[in-house]
C-alpha cells in the first residue's frame, strides 16, 4: 500500500504533506490530553508490533500480496489519535528502508495512518453500539472495522490519484481495481486485527483502549473503595 515517489505529482504530494503535518499536530495535542505515563511504553510497543507485522505480506490473489496497515489495530489498542501517531512513526522508519517514497510520505501518512486509525476507530465505535456489550463483540467489531479501513485507505489513494496522478488513465477501472484487491487485503487485515485484539483482551483487557468501558465495569467496585475521592 506504500505509495512510492512518482505515482502522484509533486504539488499534490506537497499538499498532502501539509495536511498530514496538520493532522500530526492535532494528534499530538489530542494524545497529550489523555496519554498517561504508563501507556507510553505500550504505545511504543504498538508501533513496533505494527512495523514487524507490516513486513509479513500474505498472498491475496495470484501474484498479489497484501500486508497489515495496522491503523485500526493501533487505534483500538491505544486510542485513535495515538494510533495514528504509531503508524506515522512506522512510516517514517520505513522511509529509511526505501518502503514508501520520501515526497510521498504525506500521502502515505494520510492513507495509512489517519484514514485507517480515525476511520477504523469510528467504524469500531459504531459497530460496538449495535453489538451486545460483550468481550466477543469487541473482537468482531475490531476485525470488521480494520477490514473496511483498508478499503477506505484504497479510496483515499484513489482520490489522490484522481487529483495528482502522473498518467491519464480510465479512472473507473483504477477505482474498481483498487477496491477489489484491497477488499481481499482487508480480509487479512481483519483477521490479524481481530486475533491481536482478542489476544490482548484475553491477557490484559484493561490495556485495550477500545474496551475501556468493559474494564471500568469490571474494576469499578474495587476502584471506588480504594480511591475514596477524586485523585
Amino acid at each position: 500500500m506504500h505509495i512510492p515517489d512518482g505515482f502522484i505529482n509533486a504539488g499534490t504530494s506537497a499538499g498532502a504533506a501539509v495536511i498530514a503535518a496538520g493532522g500530526v499536530s492535532v494528534a499530538v495535542k489530542k494524545t497529550s490530553d489523555y496519554m498517561e505515563d504508563k501507556q507510553v511504553p505500550l504505545a511504543g510497543l504498538t508501533a513496533a508490533f505494527v512495523f514487524a507485522v507490516q513486513m509479513l505480506n500474505f498472498p491475496v490473489a495470484a501474484g498479489t500480496s497484501g500486508h497489515l496497515l495496522g491503523g485500526a489495530l493501533a487505534a483500538i489498542l491505544v486510542g485513535p489519535w495515538a494510533g495514528a501517531l504509531c503508524v506515522t512513526v512506522v512510516l517514517i522508519v520505513q522511509a529509511f528502508f526505501a518502503d514508501g517514497g520520501i515526497t510521498a510520505l504525506g500521502l502515505n501518512i494520510l492513507d495509512m495512518s489517519f484514514i485507517t486509525a480515525l476511520g477504523g476507530y469510528a467504524l469500531f465505535v459504531g459497530l460496538r453500539r449495535v453489538l451486545p456489550k460483550q468481550r466477543w463483540s469487541i473482537v468482531i467489531a475490531s476485525g470488521i472495522a480494520a477490514g473496511v479501513s483498508v478499503v477506505l485507505s484504497s479510496l483515499a489513494f484513489f482520490v489522490q490519484f484522481t487529483v495528482g496522478g502522473n498518467v491519464d488513465l480510465r479512472l473507473g477501472s483504477v477505482l474498481a481495481a483498487m477496491v477489489g484487491v484491497h477488499t481481499l487485503v482487508g480480509v487479512g487485515e481483519g483477521v490479524i486485527t481481530a486475533a491481536t485484539v482478542g489476544l490482548v483482551l484475553g491477557v490484559r483487557p484493561d490495556l485495550v483502549y477500545g474496551a475501556r468501558d468493559l474494564a471500568t465495569r469490571l474494576e469499578l467496585k474495587p476502584q471506588v473503595r480504594t480511591a475514596g475521592g477524586l485523585s
Binding site: H2, P59, V60, G165, L169
Partner: peptide
C-alpha cells in the same frame, strides 16, 4: 513473507502507472 507485489503495486502494474515510480532517494541506504 510473500514476495509478490502488494495490492497497490499490482494495480499500478495492471492499470499502467507502475512506470511512473521514480528512484527512492534512500535506495542505497
Amino acid at each position: 513473507a510473500d514476495p509478490n507485489p502488494d495490492g497497490l503495486n499490482r494495480v499500478a502494474l495492471d492499470e499502467g502507472f507502475a512506470q511512473t515510480e521514480t528512484d527512492h532517494r534512500l535506495s542505497d541506504g
